[in-house]
Amino acid sequence: MSALVQRISRFLRSPQGQKIVDRGRREMAKPETQRKLKQLASRLSTRR
Rank of each mutant, 00 (worst) to 15 (best):
9 S>K: 03
16 Q>Y: 12
29 A>N: 10
3 A>C: 01
14 S>I: 00
7 R>S: 10
40 L>Y: 14
25 R>M: 14
20 I>V: 10
24 G>P: 01
45 S>M: 07
19 K>T: 12
37 L>W: 06
6 Q>Y: 07
23 R>N: 14
32 E>G: 08
39 Q>E: 15
32 E>W: 05
5 V>G: 05
37 L>N: 01
7 R>D: 06
12 L>D: 06
47 R>M: 14
32 E>K: 07
4 L>K: 03
17 G>W: 03
43 R>W: 12
4 L>R: 09
8 I>S: 00
24 G>A: 08
8 I>N: 00
48 R>C: 08
26 R>E: 15
6 Q>A: 05
18 Q>T: 02
41 A>T: 01
6 Q>N: 14
14 S>E: 02
27 E>G: 04
24 G>Y: 11
30 K>F: 06
39 Q>W: 01
4 L>M: 08
47 R>A: 09
23 R>Y: 14
39 Q>C: 02
33 T>P: 03
24 G>C: 08
12 L>P: 04
8 I>M: 02
8 I>L: 08
35 R>F: 13
26 R>H: 13
44 L>E: 00
34 Q>W: 12
4 L>P: 01
23 R>F: 15
10 R>P: 00
38 K>E: 15
42 S>C: 04
48 R>Y: 15
42 S>A: 14
38 K>N: 06
2 S>M: 13
42 S>P: 05
45 S>C: 05
34 Q>Y: 08
38 K>D: 13
9 S>C: 03
30 K>S: 13
18 Q>S: 11
48 R>V: 06
22 D>C: 11
34 Q>P: 08
47 R>P: 10
5 V>A: 07
7 R>L: 12
1 M>Y: 05
17 G>E: 01
36 K>G: 09
46 T>I: 05
14 S>M: 01
29 A>R: 12
31 P>F: 10
14 S>W: 01
44 L>P: 01
45 S>F: 09
42 S>G: 04
34 Q>N: 07
22 D>R: 14
20 I>M: 06
21 V>Y: 14
35 R>D: 15
41 A>G: 14
24 G>S: 10
2 S>C: 02
22 D>W: 13
9 S>H: 04
46 T>P: 00
16 Q>P: 04
10 R>N: 12
5 V>S: 11
46 T>G: 02
21 V>P: 00
33 T>A: 15
10 R>V: 13
32 E>Q: 13
19 K>D: 10
11 F>W: 00
8 I>Y: 00
29 A>I: 03
25 R>L: 15
30 K>A: 15
39 Q>Y: 10
11 F>A: 02
20 I>C: 03
18 Q>E: 11
34 Q>L: 09
15 P>T: 02
21 V>S: 06
43 R>P: 02
27 E>Y: 13
29 A>V: 01
37 L>P: 03
28 M>F: 10
17 G>D: 01
7 R>K: 01
28 M>D: 07
32 E>Y: 11
33 T>R: 07
17 G>S: 08
36 K>A: 06
18 Q>F: 03
16 Q>T: 03
13 R>C: 15
31 P>V: 06
43 R>N: 07
22 D>L: 11
15 P>G: 02
33 T>V: 09
20 I>H: 07
4 L>S: 04
43 R>Y: 04
45 S>G: 08
19 K>W: 14
34 Q>A: 08
9 S>R: 09
36 K>D: 04
3 A>P: 04
46 T>A: 14
19 K>H: 12
34 Q>C: 05
